[in-house]
Amino acid sequence: MKLECGFDQFIPLKTLNDARSGYLVDDTCVLGVEVSITWETSTGQGENLLMIKDAISQKHVWKVDNFSKLDKEFYDSKVFIAGNQKWKIRLYPDGWGSGLGSFVSLFLVSANEDPRTKVFAGYALRVKDQLQGNNDVGNAKYWFNTSGQERGWARFTSHADFRNPNKGYLVKDTCVLEAEVTVHGVVNDL
């Protein structure tokens, strides 16, 4: 349970000190609070929401060697931590869904074990340009609510662009993928 709640910037100091505003009279102000208590009618249905005010972006880079020899439907990066949550990058070398056969598909995957945890995250997935730094990037925000849930793009980069030597995405049969994840909120069931 949250034991305290409030605002870190309730009223501008300039407004508070302005005598015309009526908040400060004879160097005195009156503060108050109104508390309402409601009782839950069904037990076990509560959630605890934690919003992260100054969320920090964290990056994970995955170097994929011998791309031409990849023969599985998809590959996952090792698990990495961003915003105290577990994530993976998922790569479909020959595409998935609407991208099957002509695109590289790229997704961010929740790797959290607790099915009661929901995570609101902003993320960017990138195929890095290893020559000029002109990365192919996709950005999104999403509520991840189960382990293994993936969000991203079935048509991230076309095979033609991906294999074009001037684009720099595939150099010496190696590509570099990056996920940048910012966790903005976490919900846990009570």
Rank of each mutant, 00 (worst) to 15 (best):
K141R: 11
S105F: 13
F162A: 04
L91D: 06
D76A: 15
K88C: 08
G101L: 05
N48D: 03
N134K: 08
K141H: 08
F74P: 09
S110P: 12
A160H: 02
H159M: 05
H159N: 08
K59T: 15
F144Y: 11
D114M: 11
K53L: 13
D65L: 11
Q149F: 08
Q85F: 02
W87T: 00
R155F: 07
S57D: 07
S98E: 14
G168E: 09
V104N: 01
G148P: 13
I81A: 12
D136H: 13
Y123L: 02
Q45R: 11
S68I: 13
E73M: 14
G148C: 13
K86E: 09
D173R: 12
L70Q: 03
S110R: 00
K72L: 03
G168Y: 06
N166H: 02
N134D: 02
F144Q: 00
T117M: 12
E47P: 01
R116F: 15
R116T: 10
D94V: 11
F67H: 03
D129F: 00
D76F: 15
S147A: 05
H159V: 11
G148Q: 10
S158Q: 07
K88S: 09
Y142N: 15
Q130D: 02
K141F: 01
K172D: 10
T146G: 01
E47M: 05
L100I: 13
F103N: 15
G95L: 06
I56N: 04
V79K: 04
G133L: 07
D173C: 00
V109H: 03
V79T: 12
F162E: 00
D129H: 00
P115A: 10
G99D: 04
Y169T: 01
V137R: 03
A82R: 07
S68F: 10
F74A: 14
D161R: 11
Y169C: 14
G138L: 07
R126W: 05
E113P: 12
P93K: 15
K88F: 02
V61N: 01
A154M: 13
Y123Q: 03
D71Y: 01
W153G: 09
P165C: 10
F120A: 09
G44W: 01
G133H: 13
G83L: 15
D71S: 15
